[in-house]
C-alpha cells in the first residue's frame, strides 16, 4: 500500500497530465461529423509520431563509438519520421478530396 502511495506522490504531476489529457482527447474527438473520422484517425496517427522526439533524444545520448545504439537509433529516427511525414501527407491527400465537392476535379 505504501509503495503505491509513494508512487502516486512522486509522479503526481504526470498523473494529473494523463488524466486531463484523456478528457482533452475525448473533448477534441467527441463531436466530429462521421465523414471526418477517417482523416482524423490518420491525423492523430501522424501526431502520435511524436515518438520521433524520443528517438532523437535517445540517439542524441548515444556515444559516438557505440555502434549498436547508433544503428538502433538511426532506424528508430527513420521509422519515426516515416510515421510523421507519411501520416501528415496521407491526411492532407484525404482532406484534399473533401474540399470544394461541387466543382468537379478542382484542385487547390
Amino acid at each position: 500500500m505504501d509503495t503505491i502511495f509513494n508512487f502516486i506522490g512522486e509522479n503526481i504531476s504526470m498523473i494529473y497530465l494523463v488524466i486531463l489529457m484523456v478528457f482533452v482527447g475525448i473533448e477534441l474527438i467527441g463531436h466530429v461529423p462521421s465523414v471526418l473520422h477517417t482523416p482524423l484517425m490518420s491525423g492523430a496517427n501522424a501526431i502520435h509520431g511524436v515518438v520521433l522526439i524520443g528517438a532523437i533524444y535517445v540517439m542524441g545520448h548515444a556515444a559516438e563509438d557505440d555502434m549498436f545504439s547508433l544503428v538502433v537509433g538511426f532506424i528508430g529516427v527513420i521509422v519515426g519520421t516515416l510515421n510523421v511525414i507519411g501520416g501528415f501527407v496521407v491526411t492532407d491527400r484525404m482532406l484534399e478530396m473533401f474540399k470544394k465537392k461541387p466543382e468537379k476535379g478542382a484542385k487547390s
Binding site: G73, G76, V79
Partner: peptide, 29 residues
Amino acid sequence: MTAMPEMVSLFNGMGGLCAALISLLEWKF
C-alpha cells in the same frame, strides 16, 4: 486512394516500432 487505410496502418506500425526501439535503447543506457 483506395489503398489509403493500409498505408495509414503501416505508418502507424512504424511509429510503434520507433517507440519499441526507444525503450530498447533507454534500457541499454
